[in-house]
Computed example of a mutant assay.
Amino acid sequence: MPFEPILSRHRDVMSSPADNYKGFTDLATAQVEGTDYRVHVRANAGSTVAVIAPHGGSIEQYTSDVARDVAGADFNLYIFEGIRHAGNYSALHLTSHRFDEPRCLELLSSCDHVVALHGCAGDVQQALVGGLDEPLKAAVAKTIADLGIDTRLRGHQFPATDPKNICNRGRRGVGVQIEMTMALRLHGPREAISAAIRSVLLALPAV
């Protein structure tokens, strides 16, 4: 499937407390770990691949599930999950170029390949792929597109080219970000998407 540029589906625009966070320190001052959010880290000493969901749980629904399925038992896994009864996005969505949670940074410091799973608004099933790791980005986009999913490499709102974007903070300074629309997360083949991404990562040469 070709990757024609289109206008992306924007996230819902709203004013929220998280908009004012300059980094994780601000979030942690305003929110309580174990009550508002939790952090899951599973390091795999034999892998230099990290799969992360920095807006997991109820912040961006189903991204935790996809991250776990992609990582399996083979790759490093990091998930920041919103567990509030309500208002998870507005209180806990620390934008990706400000996401500097220390446990995540520590994990990524020993990883050469990083794939970040995200969710965005949209009533059309689409995967919007960004990041600075051009070869891995292209391979991931192709394998998702091969499932018949409308997959975009460019011309969307989430290029993830800021070096401070959490997907680009592995030790090579490049990574991949995958934004899945709400329609894709709710009604799309999540298990097939996870398996497709996982297959690309399993095929990476050992470092």
Rank of each mutant, 00 (worst) to 15 (best):
G23E: 05
F3G: 08
V41S: 03
Y89M: 10
C111G: 05
A203M: 12
R68Q: 13
G57P: 04
P135M: 11
G34C: 11
A45D: 11
D65K: 08
S64W: 00
V13P: 01
V174E: 03
S16R: 15
I144V: 15
S90N: 14
L105H: 07
H97C: 05
D69W: 12
L132T: 04
H113A: 13
I166C: 10
L105E: 10
V70D: 02
R68F: 03
I193G: 03
A86M: 11
A30K: 07
G148P: 08
N165T: 06
A86C: 12
E101T: 08
R169L: 02
S47K: 04
S96K: 01
D36Y: 07
E134D: 10
L132N: 06
A67F: 04
V66D: 00
R171N: 11
R172I: 08
N88M: 09
L7G: 07
Y89Q: 06
D12N: 13
T25I: 12
H113N: 13
F80Y: 14
Q126N: 06
E191L: 14
L94M: 12
R38E: 11
Q157H: 14
K164I: 02
H156T: 14
P159C: 09
A43M: 08
E191P: 00
R154P: 00
M1N: 10
A73T: 15
A206I: 09
A196K: 01
G72F: 01
D26E: 14
Y89T: 06
